[in-house]
Design a protein around this nucleic acid. Structure first.
Length: 917
DNA sequence: GTTCTGCATGACTAA
DNA sequence: TAGTCATGCAGAACC
């Protein structure tokens, strides 16, 4: 906590005059930021957004009964407080003495309470607390603040809660929610004022028309106040919040306290709630309110975090259940994380939810779980867990098909419900909204937000205008109304905002498409909010990629800098002394006459202007900077292109871009095989428009336009740049270039050596060919058949092997029979290792005199053999891969005997074969 | 080489 | 500070 001075001048905290711990602050409507000390902060919790009570002393008053001084109806301990509907306050001790609010003393299931107060500044608020039938003691208050001037648009609807756990819960809620409210700031308030609040009022109030309005007894100017209370009907798991409408006298001071009046607000167990007189009925809108429904089962009432509370409208519930007699019980929901929506197919389940609503599992393997989706399709997931520390981590496995079927992405929400009494599990989903951050919210005009769509079969109008303005989350079952429901409901992530005036695909910021028009487009993410983890889905990544490609289009070489060309391996690199700069994207066209043109769009009026080809535009460019035209057009002037021309221009641009991407991909693909390092891509991306028609768009023939995949020094240079690159420079760019160059040179050397090897082999082939046959026949005696096959697979060797194929085959059979009996136990390994011999070593070996080679390899018997046969036409081979095998001479002794026989046979065969020639 | 699987780690949050 | 959960990672399995 900060250590500042509480801005509440009359803070009753003993330390208020000095540095004290401050609670969170809140934005003031008038601007600025208010903070209260921990002491007063509790009061603040109960009067969230009351922007007056801390700005003057009018919020101070005395307890009607005992005269205890209270600040704005709230004092250090909220349990002191009772806000009287007549406009005053009571400290809690007095309230208790009246025996009204038994809930504050810990009794349960007996009461509800209605608080109302006038802060003296003309603001009124009325609260109703209620006890849920499931034993949750949280109270809720719907607080509406009026205004002295009676301006209804200043009214606000707020929700807070009081209960005997207010200290802990309230603080927690405040933490959770006020961050959001703080993020929203004043614009949030103003947005709420007229739109959501009023609509929500209407919606809520009209839903509960059966409740009788509480009439003002003072007869003065009245203002409608809302009271919302959680229905407490036992067993009704899907009830909706009760709303109490009151007409309260304005400008009533605390003197008008009326204890008796409180009794009027004691709600009966509300099957339904009260409707305000004079308010228009609009039941349907209420049913579309996104309801945050706390756990319906007491066993996890204090375990399930609000973020998992299902937010589902009554209408959705009805549609799920259809006409059947089944009751749909929303269980929980979860916003899909990146890993949930990823290809792994594992959906991490909140532990509390899994243990509460899914069958108990004792083994990590878990059990299959049948869950029906919104289309009625039944999926079977494996519900299991992993031990995690001393806990468990529950997952649903095999969700990928389902996720894909629903086209869900990270950030979207899946909801789990149960259909009673069958107990069937249902799975729904809700798409995340459009907006990404609160920046957008702050600029949203009134009445311009909508709720996120919930995808259910037959849910045809869940995105109605009424629901757009729906504010109130309501309470189900337990009666815990989370403050979070308010703030979260308006969080960018969960609320689909769009500009009402959006025209076509033009959206809030001109970039993002409307979710209404392109529902599958941009999804909001938790970027920079709760988690530092960046949730980014494939769509985002795709757009990011596109952006990068577009960015490449915008990369221009630095102006006034001439590149120096560096040639590496037939590839020319343009090296700039300066990093690339960002220029405005433009389109190049070529007329029939061959004249090139450049077109750019004014950032101000969005009109297209013709420019000289060689002009490099700044990132932001307007018509006023169109200094090249004789008649300098202004933004008010007509566009240089007719709509038809513009359309064809953009069309051609798009096509060209596609072609370029395709060619880039193709080029990249080609270079993967021939130029894995990507060098030379610049050729393919250098704006080659030769394939396009004469009238098509042409990129400049100069290099300035770097296309995707361009690997020139400009494009691989980071935007920040490093200035000049000296030979000793070790920056990433230079190191990359050096590395590429090194790789390239190594590749070249390798190719060269391979070529030389081939040539050398060809040269040797003539005089070796005959000997090869003998070698092969010899090898057949000493190596297994499969090794020969491997040998055959080797390219160059197979060529001359085919020359002696017949002999080989013949000897192969001989060899097979003999090899089985005499092979070396480790021969296979030896042969395998021998197969890794390089061509270079082969050539080296080949250059050795045969006798030396044989000696080196322990083939002494063959040395003598060679001597013996030297008089004949038969020459022993000088080199083979297999001859590199290092045999143990003793072990090969028997082979040598056999070899001798075979060679004699071979020489005979060979002589016979050579005779005709 | 890719996908699957089980677990570990660390960020985040509630208490 | 402990619990939860998103995600990374290594080894296994599979193609």
């Amino acid at each position: 906590m900060d250590s500042k001075v509480c801005m509440n001048q009359q803070c009753t905290s003993s330390s208020s005059s000095s540095s004290i711990d401050l609670k969170r602050g809140w934005p003031l409507r008038s601007g600025g930021f208010a903070t209260l000390c921990h002491h007063c902060g509790i009061a603040y919790e109960q009067l969230v957004f009351c922007d007056k009570f801390h700005s003057n002393d009018s919020g101070w008053r005395e307890c009607t009964t005992c005269g205890k001084r209270l600040h704005c109806g709230c004092v250090a301990s909220s349990s002191w407080l009772e806000l009287l509907d007549s406009g005053g306050v009571n400290c809690i001790s007095c309230s208790e003495s009246h025996g009204i609010c038994s809930t504050l003393t810990g009794e349960k299931n007996k009461d509800c309470r209605v608080f109302s107060a006038d802060d003296g500044g003309g603001k009124q608020f009325t609260t109703v607390g209620s006890q849920s039938n499931v034993g949750i003691t949280d109270k809720m208050k719907l607080v509406q603040f009026g205004d002295d001037a009676g301006s209804s648009d200043q009214s606000q609807l707020f929700l807070s809660q009081t209960d005997d756990r207010i200290e802990s819960l309230g603080q927690r809620k405040m933490k959770e929610n006020f961050l959001t409210s703080g993020e929203f700031g004043s614009p949030f308030l103003s947005v709420l004022n007229q739109t959501s609040v009023e609509a929500a009022q209407n919606a809520q109030l009209n839903e509960y028309k059966e409740y009788m309005p509480i009439k003002d007894t003072h007869g003065s100017s009245v203002q409608t106040n809302l009271t919302i209370s959680p229905p407490a009907t036992s067993g009704d798991k899907n009830f909706l919040p009760a709303v109490v409408a009151e007409e309260r006298p304005l400008n009533k001071k605390s003197s008008s306290f009326s204890q008796g009046s409180r009794s009027r607000h004691l709600l009966p167990k509300p099957v339904k709630s009260i409707m305000a007189a004079g308010l228009e009925a609009n039941v349907s809108s209420l049913t579309q309110l996104r309801v945050a429904r706390p756990p319906v089962e007491g066993r996890i009432k204090n375990q399930l975090l609000p973020r998992y509370w299902p937010r589902i409208t009554d209408q959705e519930l009805r549609q799920i259940s259809g006409d059947s007699n089944s009751t749909v019980v929303p269980l929980f929901e979860k916003v899909l994380s990146a890993s949930d929506a990823g290809r792994i197919g594992r959906l991490v389940l909140p532990k509390a939810c899994a243990e509460a609503y899914f069958p108990p599992i004792s083994q990590p393997e878990g059990l299959p779980l049948r869950i029906q989706d919104v289309q009625g399709k039944e999926w079977v997931f494996q519900f299991r867990f992993w031990p995690n520390n001393n806990s468990r981590m529950y997952v649903l496995e095999g969700v990928t098909p389902c996720i894909q079927s629903m086209q869900l992405q990270a950030g979207d929400t899946v909801t789990f419900s149960r259909m009673d009494p069958e107990g069937k599990l249902l799975m729904g989903f809700r798409k995340a909204s459009l907006m990404q951050d609160n920046k957008h919210l702050s600029s949203i005009p009134k009445g311009s937000f909508s709720s996120e769509p919930f995808f259910l079969p037959g849910a045809d109008n869940l995105h109605s205008a009424n629901s757009q303005s729906a504010l109130l989350d309501s309470v189900k079952g337990s009666g815990v109304f989370p403050l979070s429901a308010l703030s979260k409901h308006f969080s960018a992530v969960e609320f689909g905002w769009h500009i009402a005036e959006m025209n076509g695909e033009k959206t809030l910021d001109g970039i993002f498409p409307s979710p209404m028009l392109v529902p599958e487009r941009k999804r909001s993410r938790n970027i920079g909010s709760k988690s530092k983890r960046l949730l980014i889905d494939s769509q985002d990544a795709f757009e990011l990629k596109l952006s990068w490609e577009e960015l490449q289009d915008m990369l221009c070489p630095p102006p006034c800098v001439k590149p120096s060309t560096v040639a590496i391996e037939d590839h020319e690199f343009e090296e700039y002394d300066q990093p690339p700069v960002f220029g405005k994207k433009s389109i190049f066209t070529m007329r029939q006459s061959g004249e090139q043109e450049q077109w750019a769009q004014c950032d101000s009026c969005l009109k297209w202007r013709r420019l000289p080809v060689n002009v490099l535009l700044p990132p932001k460019w307007t018509c006023q900077e169109h200094t090249w035209a004789l008649s300098r057009p202004s933004c008010s002037g007509p566009e240089d292109l007719s709509p038809h021309e513009l359309e064809s221009l953009l069309k051609m641009s798009k096509e060209l871009k596609k072609q370029k991407i395709a060619s880039g991909l193709k080029s990249a693909h080609e270079h993967e095989s021939s130029d894995p390092d990507g060098l030379g891509n610049s050729k393919a991306v250098r704006g080659d428009t030769s394939g396009t028609s004469a009238a098509s768009i042409a990129t400049t023939t100069k290099h300035p336009r770097h296309r995707p995949g361009c690997s020139c020094i400009v494009c691989i240079q980071p935007p920040s740049g490093k200035g000049k690159h000296k030979p000793t420079c070790t920056c990433n760019v230079c190191m990359t270039v050096k590395r590429r160059f090194k790789t390239l040179m190594m590749r070249k050397k390798k190719r060269q050596s391979e070529r030389e090897a081939e040539i050398a082999q060809r040269n040797k082939f003539d005089w070796v060919s005959k000997e090869e046959a003998e070698v092969e026949s010899y090898q057949q005696l000493v190596i297994p058949h499969d090794s020969l096959e491997n040998h055959k697979r080797l390219g160059s060797e197979s060529e001359f092997l085919s020359q002696s194929n017949k002999q080989s085959e013949k000897l192969e059979e001989i060899g097979k029979e003999q090899l089985d009996l005499n092979c070396h136990p480790d021969r296979e390994n030896l042969q395998q290792s021998s197969s890794r011999v390089s061509m270079v070593s082969l050539l080296q070996e080949a250059s050795l005199p045969l006798q030396t080679y044989l000696k080196q390899n322990g083939l002494t018997s063959l040395v003598s053999d060679q001597r013996v046969s030297s008089g004949s036409n038969v020459l022993l081979p000088q080199v083979t891969r297999e001859s590199e095998l290092q045999f143990d001479e003793d072990q090969c002794l028997s082979h040598e005997i056999q070899e001798q026989e075979v060679k004699e046979e071979l020489s005979e065969t060979d002589q016979a074969g050579n005779d005709p020639s």
